[in-house]
Design a protein around this nucleic acid. Structure first.
Lengths: 341, 341
DNA sequence: GTGAAAGCGCTAACAC
DNA sequence: GTGTTAGCGCTTTCAC
């Protein structure tokens, strides 16, 4: 009792009340007199008292911790370039809602059992899982175990699982439509594997635009490759005859830009190039790259909210699709400003 | 008791022993008969029983959780390009040691109080903190609160604080030395602000090499700028007369490569370029970029080990400096192979 | 409005 | 070797 009080009971003793009352105050619960509440609040502030999270969680039967899976080395994962930002968004939202964030990486080997384990041990109440495709074995395990989960970047729902995603398809559709309207006729989409949900959507948007044009002299082509800078460099055959190259990643577009410059073709005079992700690079590319910005902060916030519903109210929120933004820049000429898609 | 047993007492009841005995088995402690241990182990396996982490932690007085701080948006942060890998390394090591990882991002605003809070609430036992400079306010707070902490990327120790870093200086020194030996005479170092520990070290290594050469016709120049792709592009004045450009980041080197190509100077024929970080880009740059690889996995593993010593044995391990590797590639000609530095 | 009491599920000290 | 007991520090009925 000398020095700082370190338990709720010590605070209670000093305030001349019982531990239960202090607990009520700390949790903002009713049933405490104005007088007493004030006195206790002041004591808590004075001693900067926080309480013991582990004890609280044991008593409440949950951990107020969100597990988030961060597939670091999965190079096929479409959201890779934006993971750090997404992670930041989730972490910020979690903090806002008073949740801690437990990180699971998949840098080495299969993390499934470790994650399941953390849930069983009640270290996490639920999961936010940026997933690529339905082939991800973790999804199956998570459903099996009944772990409350919010998927990001993949659209699959179940009993205790919902998702948040954005309009990959509409963004690419808008880009293709505008390039067509500007007179481009041989358009190639450099895309990742279509079984990955986001890439599949982008493919759909692309072909929708091509078909909607009704133009008989319009040639669309989709090339499937591993995304990344190297992919751009290696795609020379695919873009040789194109007058517009839509890339599914900024890094790929960066490679294409270099490739075109080396072969003396001018961007955007004779060929347009676009990227995806709105990475810092895109604004500094030469010429600055038209790209697509995903609503990362909103995605993170919504994922956290959904997960809290799932875990605390046992309701499964409806899946959500958030709008992307096409950021028009010099690599597609002056033909448009920025707008929502 | 129907369905799966869910507490240690239920397991104990089925095994016909007491909860204490089951606990001993689960924690691999002595004092249990061979017979009983076998029977209990089998039951645990059969029911896939894990126990409740929160209860365990409450009883033990610690959380077996490592807090790791991930400064996402701090663009001046030197380790930025490698954070995801570093994070993966730390996370893997933590798992290996049976620790959970709690993530704190600094994407928005000052995270200090949130982090302190988590420690006070006993949600984390200690911190791994990739830090830039002694100006980081979090360092001061952490020392003040006496939170066991391992710093990465900054060299500052105290009572409950130690660090792991790598040979930034020697890597740059080796590069400069080799370029000098190959005949380069006007060498510029594009570096970040020297108050940042890692940049300061690189500066030291650079000047050591210049001075050690004893060459009177050798001109070294250090330019301090914000690292990143844009920085490279914007540094044209600084590199105009150089025959070697040593960059403190691969992204900067990428910009320089582009700049030189646009002004018709050939790499590596008339000018050498090197980067830092060994990001995926560097291998695919044109020409492939000579760069420096940091020992991220070892750093992560050691940081975790040190932190465990700090928290569980109350001993403060000696700071550690790990070796970097210079990766020689086409941007510096054919003059060397890869070696440790 | 407030206190007392009974846990939450585990670990650890001490008996036997 | 193993059981018993007493907490860890909080939340939450249930009386008053």
């Amino acid at each position: 009792m000398d020095g700082k009080p370190t338990t709720i009971r010590e605070i209670a003793a000093i305030a001349g009340v019982s531990a239960g009352t202090v607990s009520r105050v700390m949790n903002g619960k009713p049933g405490v007199g104005k007088e007493a509440r004030k006195r206790i609040s002041e004591l808590i502030a004075e001693y900067d008292f926080r309480g013991d999270g582990n004890a609280r969680q044991l008593a409440k039967g949950r951990s107020d911790t969100i597990g988030i899976v961060f597939p670091l080395h999965a190079s096929e994962v479409v959201m890779h370039p934006v993971y750090p930002d997404l992670l930041g968004a989730i972490s910020d939202s979690a903090q806002l809602h008073g949740k801690d964030v437990n990180l699971f990486t998949t840098a080495s080997g299969d993390p499934s059992e470790h994650i399941i384990d953390a849930f069983r041990r009640r270290r996490v109440d639920g999961l936010i899982l940026p997933a690529a495709s339905s082939e991800d074995p973790l999804i199956a395990r998570v459903v099996e175990e009944g772990i409350p989960t919010v998927l990001i970047g993949h659209r699959q729902a179940s009993d205790r699982m919902t998702w948040v995603d954005c309009t990959h398809d509409e963004a690419i559709e808008e880009i293709a439509r505008r390039l067509i309207a500007a007179g481009r006729r041989r358009i190639v989409l450099l895309n990742g594997p279509r079984r990955v949900c986001a890439y599949g959507l982008r493919s759909e948007g692309f072909w929708r635009a091509i078909e909607a044009s009704g133009l008989s002299d319009l040639v669309g082509e989709e090339v499937e490759l591993d995304m990344g800078y190297a992919a751009g460099i290696g795609a020379s055959a695919a873009v040789r005859d194109a007058d517009a190259v839509i890339c599914s990643a900024d890094s790929t577009a960066g490679g294409i830009l270099e490739l075109l410059r080396d072969s003396g073709r001018e961007v955007p005079a004779t060929v347009d190039v676009t990227g995806f992700d709105d990475t810092p690079f895109s604004a500094h590319a030469n010429p600055p790259l038209t790209t697509v910005r995903m609503p990362l902060r909103e995605t993170g916030e919504l994922a956290v909210q959904h997960l809290i519903r799932l875990t605390e109210e046992s309701i499964t929120p409806a899946p959500t699709i958030l709008p992307t933004t096409v950021v028009w820049r010099g690599s597609t000429g002056e033909r448009a400003g920025t707008r929502e898609s």
